[in-house]
């Protein structure tokens, strides 16, 4: 396998007596869609928080593109190309879709210590925002306030914000949360198209999506990775079936 884009080594996080992350070791290869599955409370979101930099691990290392980013603040990791989306939608509700996305574009294009020139006059930002909006299916909603969008549209904007950072690796935390079947299909299509340009660590409960999209799957139970393998291997793994998949495994 090629040099890993993301390498997590012995990551640990405790909250009092509770072990939320228990020696997690994980690799995401360039161009890979790597799914992270596990029952509720397994520590998936806690792991994402540590990878993205909003939560400091107690032990272990995180390497991104070969560099140790364990102590790097979140905004630094985003600049390095590691961006996340949230399970609970976190957008700028009073801003238009265009302004939401162009904020993310602005973060990576030039200094934001500009005090005089109206940002609305920066057509390059707006154009790039429009391009990303079209990519996530919001091309005709640019002027709508983000808070006024339908739930599924907000979920698309959520992913769009992460995408707009021009990340090399996206940490997508349950992008299909709360979506209907049709909307989920559209999100699956979107992530499938991302495959060409960006790597993805995908946390998802929708097993249909996971088995269709993932190149490899890691299974997290009680904070520890109990199995990693191709979809076929995971499907066949007796421990995984017992611990998590149950009857949900597509046959």
């Amino acid at each position: 396998m090629a040099e890993a884009l993301l390498r997590v080594d012995g990551l640990e996080k405790h909250f009092g007596g509770i072990v939320a992350t228990d020696g997690v070791t994980l690799e995401v290869a360039p161009g890979e869609i790597h799914a992270l599955i596990g029952p509720n409370g397994a520590g998936k979101t806690t792991l994402i928080a540590q990878l993205s930099g909003s939560l400091a691990p107690d032990a272990g290392r995180i390497l991104f593109g070969g560099a140790d980013i364990t102590a790097m603040p979140q905004h630094g990791r985003v600049r390095a190309g590691l961006a996340r989306s949230y399970q609970i939608t976190s957008i700028f509700r009073r801003f238009s879709v265009r302004d939401n996305l162009s904020l993310a574009v602005q973060a990576r294009s030039g200094s934001s210590l500009a005090f005089w020139r109206p940002v609305a006059a920066e057509t390059a930002l707006a154009e790039e925002a429009g391009r990303i909006a079209a990519q996530v299916g919001l091309g005709d909603r640019l002027d709508a306030a983000a808070g006024s969008l339908a739930h599924a549209e907000q979920r698309c904007l959520e992913v769009g914000l992460a995408l707009a950072t021009n990340a090399r690796l996206l940490l997508l935390d349950e992008p299909m949360a709360g979506m209907g079947p049709d909307e989920s299909q559209r999100m699956i299509g979107l992530i499938e198209r991302l495959r060409a340009t960006v790597s993805v660590l995908l946390v998802e409960h929708d097993m249909d999506a996971v088995f269709r999209l993932a190149d490899r799957i890691s299974v997290l139970v009680n904070g520890a990775i109990v199995a990693t393998g191709t979809p076929a291997e995971i499907r066949a793994d007796a421990d995984v079936r017992r611990a998590y998949l149950g009857d949900e495994v597509p046959t």
């Binding site: 993205s52 909003s54 603040p73 979140q74 905004h75 985003v78 600049r79 961006a83 996340r84 949230y86 976190s90 957008i91 700028f92 509700r93 009073r94 801003f95 302004d99 904020l103 993310a104 602005q106 973060a107 990576r108 030039g110 200094s111 934001s112 210590l113 500009a114 005090f115 005089w116 020139r117 109206p118 940002v119 609305a120 920066e122 914000l161 992460a162 707009a164 950072t165």
Partner: peptide, 26 residues
């Protein structure tokens, strides 16, 4: 001028959602 410039928009966006601003690189 300031509130309509890049800086002003960043400050207002931080008011709206600070953790997301960190998460998109600010």
């Amino acid at each position: 001028r300031l509130v309509n410039a890049r800086f002003g928009r960043v400050v207002q966006a931080i008011r709206e959602n600070e953790s997301r601003m960190e998460a998109i690189g600010y």
